[in-house]
Lab assay of single mutants.
Amino acid sequence: NQASVVANTLIPINTALTLVMMRSEVVTPVGIPAEDIPRLVSMTVNRAVPLGTTLMPDMVKGYA
């Protein structure tokens, strides 16, 4: 099973992502692959992402 990116904290809308905000976890449904974490750093989220939420491609500006 592939690990996905999961919010390690509440990420407010329009926040630039940092490494400490994200962790990898095997979850269903599958979200952004964990190997993309380095690429996500400094990208911003377009909605509030609660703790434990899987990051989906449409949640990160410029990812999809």
Rank of each mutant, 00 (worst) to 15 (best):
D58I: 12
V45C: 05
M56D: 05
D58L: 08
P29K: 05
M21P: 02
V30W: 08
V60D: 02
V6F: 02
V20W: 10
E35F: 06
V45W: 00
V49Y: 02
N46P: 03
D36V: 07
L19R: 11
N1L: 13
R47C: 09
I11N: 02
I37W: 03
T54S: 04
N46G: 07
T53F: 12
P33T: 10
M59P: 02
E25S: 10
P12D: 12
P33W: 06
V30C: 05
L10C: 15
S24I: 06
T9N: 10
P29C: 06
L51F: 10
S24E: 15
N14P: 00
L19G: 05
S24L: 07
S4P: 01
E25I: 04
M43C: 09
S42V: 03
T54I: 07
M21S: 12
S42I: 03
I32D: 01
P12M: 10
P57W: 05
P50C: 07
A48C: 06
N1K: 04
V26M: 09
V20L: 14
M21I: 03
I32S: 01
E35Y: 10
Q2T: 12
S24D: 08
T53A: 12
L40H: 00
N8D: 12
R23Q: 05
T54R: 03
L10K: 12
S4M: 02
Q2N: 13
Q2V: 13
V41S: 03
T9K: 12
K61F: 09
V30E: 15
A3R: 04
E25N: 08
T28S: 14
R39I: 12
A16P: 12
L40I: 13
P38R: 08
P38M: 07
I13F: 14
V27E: 02
I32Y: 01
D36E: 12
S4N: 02
L55I: 15
I13R: 07
P12Y: 07
S4Y: 03
V45N: 02
V26G: 06
A34P: 07
V30N: 13
D36R: 10
T54E: 01
M21L: 07
V27Y: 02
T28W: 04
P12V: 14
G62M: 09
M22I: 14
P50S: 11
A7Q: 01
M56E: 14
M59G: 03
Q2R: 04
T9G: 10
Y63V: 04
D36I: 05
L51V: 12
M22D: 02
P50L: 11
P38L: 12
G52E: 06
L51C: 14
G62R: 05
G52H: 14
T53P: 01
P33R: 11
T44R: 08
M56Q: 15
S24N: 08
A64I: 13
L40K: 00
A48F: 10
V27R: 06
S4R: 00
A3G: 06
M59E: 03
A48Q: 11
T28K: 04
V6A: 03
V26Y: 07
T44K: 05
T9W: 09
L17I: 13
P12G: 07
V5M: 02
V49C: 07
V26C: 06
T18C: 05
K61P: 09
V49K: 01
M22P: 00
I37C: 06
A3H: 14
S42C: 15
L51K: 09
V30P: 11
V49I: 15
D58Q: 08
S4H: 00
R47M: 14
L55P: 00
P38Q: 11
R47K: 12
N8M: 09
A3K: 06
R39P: 01
V60F: 06
T18S: 09
T54A: 06
N1D: 15
T9V: 11
V26H: 07
L10S: 13
M21E: 03
G31Y: 02
S4W: 03
I32F: 02
R47Q: 14
V5P: 01
A48E: 12
L55A: 01
V60M: 04
M43Q: 07
P12T: 12
K61E: 13
L51G: 13
V30A: 09
G52K: 04
P33Q: 10
T54D: 01
P50E: 12
V41A: 08
Q2Y: 09
P12F: 05
V6Y: 00
I32W: 02
T15K: 08
P50A: 11
P38G: 11
M56K: 10
Y63S: 05
L40C: 03
N8H: 08
V60Q: 01
A7R: 02
N46K: 09
V6R: 04
V6C: 05
V20H: 13
L40R: 00
